[in-house]
Nucleic acid binder design. Sequence first.
DNA 1: GGTAGACCTGGACGC
DNA 2: GCGTCCAGGTCTACC
Length: 336
Amino acid sequence: MKPSVPGNRLEPNTHYPPVPQTPSTLSIAVPDDFSLPIAVCSYGYFLLAPNRWDPDRQQLLRTLQGRRDRLIHIRLRQSGSRLTLACNQPLERAEQAKIKHQVIRMLRLDQDLSQWYHHCPAARRRGFGRLFRSPSFFEDVIKTITTCNVAWVQTRRMNSLLCREFGGGGFSTPHQLAATTPAQLKRKCRVGYRAQRIVGLARRVTEGKIDLEWFEHPHRHVEELMAALLKIHGIGLYAAASLCQLLGHYDHLAIDTETRRHYLTHIRRAQPASADDLRRLDREIEQYYARHGSYRFLAYWFELWQTYEKQRGKRSDRWSEPDADSFTTAQLGTSS
DNA sequence: GGTAGACCTGGACGC
DNA sequence: GCGTCCAGGTCTACC
């Protein structure tokens, strides 16, 4: 065991934004089928800093980037067909639009779910389909890199430290990460070998060598996106498929140990005997979900989400901070 | 094209 | 308290 770095001991939620006093309030109309708790708690990133879900008040707290990257603390609540955003500072008109745009992205409020609901009526009944994501694609990419080759509890720690050490409480921006060195990032945020990849990506973004807006264009083809994502150092098949999902393309499964565990435990009910079996298993998983066509990922995720709820014995929107470090079927299986 | 090993952290476990 | 093992996805060198 290596010695711990002084000052890096961190309770998971110590950096979290305070509940804002409310000098300004914004309102956003939401579709009839929208549920804030289900949208927020549908994907694990809601448990990563600087997001904070309050299950008792059914509200989301976090910081967003305002004008000139100043940090705005927001509190998000649903009241019928509207979302109310309480902000801790007065906002100019342009800044209001910027904040709203980020909230719409996080909750996928502009997404049409009719075809998905037609494909999966059970998802319609639960209002499931708007998987939670970050206010920016950059944050989604960094969060995805921090989920790779690491236990979930460490992913949580890395994101908390990224906010505390470089983001001033909000999530680190490309400029903040580009200005540091891999060695510093590694030392302060415990990201290990990912430091080189994270700083490298941030620098390529700030130098204009990678245009993240290109990825968000609505008419991009999924294979075009996969090819471009796989060119980014540190993004492999799993991460690229995850990022496609976060961009609204559900054609590819992001197969990881969690996927295999879920499939083996709940569908196939038999363990593979060898590494060769494991390779065959991945092909088998692909074939199993192929019937969902361009909704493979959503169908798999809905299945997994229902399993979490069943194992935890309560609705996912009731999950609280102590549950957050055990957000995998393996952990749920041993702790519930 | 397929495969083995390195990358890095922190929790679990044995002593 | 210390040392060792292990899990986790990606990259790279080698066959």
